[in-house]
């Protein structure tokens, strides 16, 4: 087996997958809702990096197109969840 740039990319993708697992542990442990959102945000960023790495490994540019869309959609999701947490608290105080 030759040790060239594509093998290094594969090792990087494996390491990033490990990072996703560590972040998911925080997503399950909590303890508060914002903690879980932070973990989710971290997972999203790492997934975008992982997709770009895989695009270079498989030499399929479509992966990067999907990574861009994923980055923007996950940003929308993060903003929406943050707003949702704020609004839920206000409703509880009003009742």
């Amino acid at each position: 087996m030759t040790f060239g740039p594509s093998e290094i990319l594969l090792i990087t993708v494996a390491a990033l997958a490990l990072g996703i697992l560590i972040s998911l542990l925080r997503l399950f442990l909590g303890p508060t809702a914002p903690d879980r959102v932070v973990a989710l945000d971290t997972v999203n960023t790492i997934v975008v990096g992982l997709m770009v790495g895989l695009a270079a490994y498989y030499e399929e540019v479509v992966f990067v197109d999907i990574a861009v869309v994923y980055a923007l959609l996950s940003f929308g999701a993060t903003m929406f969840i943050a707003r949702y947490i704020e609004r839920t608290k206000e409703n509880q105080e009003a009742v």
Binding site: P34, V37, D41, V48, A56, F75, T78, M79, A82, R83
Partner: peptide
């Protein structure tokens, strides 16, 4: 591949700090 990667980087650079700020504000206000 190079052009789209730069766009992915720009998307991350603009959205990451804004998302962090939204989470911090939601946490402090709750």
């Amino acid at each position: 591949l190079i052009g789209m990667s730069i766009i992915a980087l720009l998307a991350l650079l603009f959205t990451n700090p804004t998302g962090a700020h939204a989470i911090a504000r939601a946490a402090r206000r709750t």
